[in-house]
Design a protein around this nucleic acid. Structure first.
Length: 290
DNA sequence: GCGAAATGGGAAA
DNA sequence: TTCCCCTTTCGCC
């Protein structure tokens, strides 16, 4: 589940259900007991996502959540169900409840500690400009918009990321997964957007070029915004699916991700799988030839 | 019942 | 690069 779209969708759901309300925060599993006590019974001001990170501000105490590979949040209206399994953090308010399981990070931070995390992250395609990023940072830090954020003519996120890859010899397939370069992309969007742009995953960042990067950025943003809307990652065009009507079936949703050995939807040659920096990389060696 | 895998990332070496 | 953590689910005895 958790690439950037999941976190932005979650932030919206949590904001809708809990923002402005007093929240009872607990840790049925016990591993977040001390942290829960710091925010229990406080009013939730806002919830924001940035890349794959979620920040829930209870005033100047901010709960930071990172879902990692298999973290998950379940939420609903009414009274919470009895906790089943390892519920790290539970929220309960008059408007409903939510349960967090299996996160890599669940901790209470101060505004400066949040800044340190944001400093390590590149632009997020789900936030269209660096101006918006600065505004988000200001609100998390409990300030009004900074003078920097008010100034117009900030560089576009797209161009900030472009400058970063343009000076790197690392393969574009690796750079897309580097959260310091671009925040929120995971293994599915990485593989799929490279296929859609017909880019060789091993192409060095410096050789991608401004045109191709701009097209990739635009495509990626569209895919991720669709992911936020629908809660799933569907990257195939209608014409490239077995069935072109009705709900997209899971086996039709991707071009290359987890399709090792299956025929490419475009050219028919078998999709290949490599290992790149410890993660699986899927691509079509013909459509994405160097 | 057991092992492996999963849309991630940080620290250690 | 390798290890380690987080939790659930699914395939295979």
């Amino acid at each position: 589940m958790p690439e950037g779209h999941t976190l932005h969708r979650l932030a919206r759901a949590q904001r809708d259900r809990f923002a402005g309300r007093v929240v009872a925060v607990s840790s049925p599993q016990g591993r977040f007991e001390a942290g829960a006590a710091l925010v229990d019974g406080r009013r939730l001001v806002d919830v924001t996502a940035y890349g794959k990170h979620l920040f829930a501000a209870f005033g100047d105490r901010i709960v930071h959540v990172h879902l990692g590979l298999f973290g998950r949040v379940v939420e609903g209206p009414g009274d919470p169900p009895p906790p089943i399994g390892a519920v790290r953090m539970r929220w309960v308010a008059e408007s409903g409840w939510s349960d967090l399981r299996g996160p890599t990070a669940c901790e209470v931070l101060s505004p400066p500690e949040v800044e340190l995390i944001l400093d390590r992250l590149g632009p997020d395609p789900l936030r269209p400009s660096t101006q918006r990023l600065l505004q988000a940072r200001s609100s998390l830090a409990g300030r009004g918009p900074s003078s920097e954020a008010r100034t117009s003519a900030r560089p576009l996120s797209r161009d900030v990321a472009c400058a970063r890859i343009a000076r790197s010899r690392a393969p574009i397939g690796g750079l897309l997964m580097d959260q310091r370069v671009i925040a929120g992309v995971g293994n599915v969007y990485r593989a799929e957007v490279l296929f859609r742009r017909r880019l060789d995953p091993y192409l060095p960042g410096r050789d991608v070029g401004r045109e191709r990067w701009a097209a990739l950025w635009t495509d990626l943003g569209g895919l991720m915004r669709q992911g936020v809307r629908t809660g799933r990652i569907v990257t195939t065009e209608r014409a490239d699916r077995e069935r072109s009507s009705g709900r997209v079936r899971a086996e039709d949703a991707h071009y290359v991700y987890r399709r090792t050995g299956l025929p490419c939807r475009v050219c028919g040659s078998p999709i290949v799988q490599h290992d790149l920096a410890g993660r699986k990389l899927y691509f079509c060696a013909v459509c994405q030839a160097p």
